[in-house]
Amino acid sequence: MTIRHPGASWRGALAAALVVTICIGGIGTSGDARAEYADVVINNYSDAAGMRPVIFPHWFHRIRFRCKVCHADLGFQFKAGGNEINMVKIIDGQFCGACHNGDIAWSVENCNLCHSGKPGTPTQVHESTIQKLAIQPQAGGQQ
């Protein structure tokens, strides 16, 4: 409900902000928002696991599927990072794995196609209203 996330995510967000600032040399936490509107960065576990964060391109998927397929049939919540997706679930055919199974879409061995974000990028919806504020409210606006 609030813009900021309490508790645990703070440490991560701060660390991430630091890394991002160093990596991009950009403007604060969201870098310079050049990525596509609605690109979702998912970094629940990736950084900790030594993988690049996942970037989910909404635009690409909405050309191919209606919102309902993922958000009703597959159970994706309307919230960046709000689905506790991990590779076991994907391999078992849940979430991304419902299509990324080598049948409907390319399968899980193509790690780097999803895990393609700059390391340390926090979980976020890119270009969201909050991000578009010229002056950022605080580190890692995640909504």
Partner: peptide, 29 residues
């Protein structure tokens, strides 16, 4: 700076080989 291809969009890692295989949005838009 609108609709840049993934390697230039600021959040994709250009050092990642997969990034360069992704479709650039403008190609479709």
């Amino acid at each position: 700076k609108r609709n840049p291809p993934p390697p230039e969009d600021g959040i994709h890692d250009p050092d990642n080989d997969g990034t360069h295989a992704l479709q650039p949005p403008l190609q479709v838009f």
